[in-house]
């Protein structure tokens, strides 16, 4: 270790109160006579305090994010329930308000990205939305299916939102609208919280800083293919849901590995999925990790432009052939 790094270690120990005896005396002597050392101690102490404050703020935001909802032992998992409830609210708010053309535009682009990377088509049967994958396989995403699965012009969407809004009230035209559009209405029953902090607005959805291209390159740089999965030549798709706090930090990150492929690139059946649960967990943990280390997001805003809490979903595709990819749906 270089000499100056050694000094930093000494300062660290001093600040933690772990220096004692002759070492402590010597350090104190140095400190009294060496202004440069004093300045280093100050800087280091402040930096540590800043690190702690940032981490503390993230913890506080996490508590604030769930408001009055149930508290879970492990903050990184098990928050799916809250996310779903909030997801319901997203849908409710979205459908019950006028549409913003800017958002339609934005989501359209994202949908196209999604289509071109993984999903060949989206179809609706019996009120359920399926993603048709590249090989013709159908996947039912176990997400609050509500928004933007199909891109359309702003005007169409506008009419649509009115239709859906009416359908919600009368419960009569729902099937018809679903078939036309691929939208699935959320039932009002899903909206179980009355915490005003959780109301999410349509006005601007949360986004990765500098856009989806930056998100992709961030994934390229930071996402690793789990070693064991690589050895066994298994690939997988993971959905990650999380909250974007008004400060842009993420909380309640939860990943679900919903499909995996074996070494012959054949989709696994449910038994194989269970047998390879450990690999699925590796994919999930890696996806959660990547979401956790992302830079601060641009939060969603309400009609006054105030930053608000919002939900986000990202889909990660761990593939040995094409590399890791990411897409968003909402």
């Amino acid at each position: 270790m270089r000499a100056d790094l050694h000094t930093m270690e000494q300062i660290d120990l001093y600040l933690q109160g772990k220096l004692n005896g002759a070492e402590l005396d010597q350090f104190k002597n140095n400190l009294a006579t060496n202004p440069e050392l004093q300045s280093m101690v100050n800087d280091q102490q402040l930096l540590i305090q800043t690190v702690n404050r940032k981490a503390l703020l993230a913890e506080i935001n996490m508590v604030a994010g769930i408001g009055g909802a149930a508290w879970y032992a492990n903050p990184w998992v098990g928050m799916g329930g809250a996310a779903l409830v909030i997801g319901g609210i997203v849908a409710a708010v979205y459908f019950s308000s006028d549409n913003d053309p800017e958002i339609n535009q934005q989501t359209e682009i994202i949908t196209q990205n999604f289509d071109s990377t993984l999903v060949e088509d989206t179809i609706v049967e019996d009120g359920t939305t399926y993603f048709v994958m590249e090989d013709g396989e159908r996947i039912v995403p176990d997400i609050p299916q509500n928004k933007h699965l199909v891109s359309g012009s702003g005007n169409e969407d506008n009419d649509l939102s009115n239709q859906l809004y009416n359908a919600d009230e009368t419960s009569q035209n729902t099937d018809e609208t679903d078939e036309q559009t691929g939208h699935v209405t959320s039932t009002p029953d899903e909206v179980k919280t009355n915490n005003p902090e959780n109301v999410i607005s349509k006005n601007r959805i949360a986004s990765f800083p500098k856009g989806d291209a930056a998100l992709k390159s961030f994934i390229d740089e930071n996402m690793r293919f789990p070693g064991t999965a690589k050895e066994k030549k298994i690939s997988g798709n993971v959905k990650v849901t999380f909250l974007v706090n008004p400060e842009g930090t993420r909380s309640n990150i939860e990943a679900t590995c919903f499909t995996m492929r074996d070494e012959n690139d054949k989709p696994m059946n449910s038994t194989q999925m269970v047998l390879n649960q450990k690999i699925a967990n590796l994919f999930e943990r890696e996806a959660e990790r990547v979401v956790r280390i992302m830079p601060v997001w641009i939060p969603a805003t309400d009609s006054q432009g105030n930053a608000v809490l919002s939900t986000q979903e990202l889909y990660f595709n761990f593939s040995l052939k094409t590399g890791n990819t990411v897409y968003r749906l909402d």
């Binding site: 270790m1 790094l5 930093m8 800087d43």
Partner: peptide, 15 residues
């Protein structure tokens, strides 16, 4: 450890 102190050095330098 070395990485940690290098990070720290870099952060203080940036500041």
């Amino acid at each position: 450890k070395t990485q940690k102190y290098k990070c720290m050095e870099r952060a203080i330098e940036l500041a």
